[in-house]
Write a protein that binds this DNA or RNA. Sequence first.
DNA 1: ACCCAGGGTCATA
DNA 2: TATGACCATGGG
Length: 222
Amino acid sequence: MGRSNTYRLIFDVLYSSYGPQHWWPGETPFEIMLGAVLTQNTSWTNVEKAIIALKVNRALDPQIIVNTKHETLASWLTPVGYFNVKATRLQSFCNWYLKSGEFEALNTCDTTELRKALLSVKGIGPETADDILLYAFTRPIFVIDAYTRRLFSRLGYINGDEAYETLRTNFEKKLCRQSEKTQLFNEYHGLIVHHAKYFCKTKPVCKECCLKKYCDFYQKGS
DNA sequence: ACCCAGGGTCATA
DNA sequence: TATGACCATGGG
């Protein structure tokens, strides 16, 4: 039962090809949470610059972020793009985070309750909430992003335009028998992103990569 | 010059 | 419910 599961098989292939990914980049849970917001539709190299700017200004702290003027915060966020939007989102998130008792208090919530609370914050959508749940609160939540849709639709396992919740519960169901789910979901998402960034940038994908023989596209095409 | 990047909100039909 | 506009910088 540990195998005969194609979703697990794809993980094993990716893991044996690329190894552990050590996700999420970030030294503390709070830094991970900010990174999750800042990386919305934005490359991680840009996010790193903004996080460094926050550190240089000693602003990697929820109380300081809510006390900082919008324009000042936005100026630190320039490299990520959408800096006005994201300054507002960081402040609304930090307001909620402080009023909720920060990490320690929030971590006593069960996962369903915590997920609902995160989604109630303006600027936190399903993917950002799940990044935070998985990587900051180490909860067994499978993150669905554009790379996941692209890879698994090209493998032929999904259509690609399913609703977010449909895909998330589907992946979690397919992998529900695995032990150490949190660690598996953690590595899996990191591996999908690594694979997309370094091996499947061009279309069609999987031409020379480790998943070629599992890819529907190359089985049918000839 | 163009396209995409570890999305989300809001207005409209 | 389902599209489209918008946010905006940086690297390929």
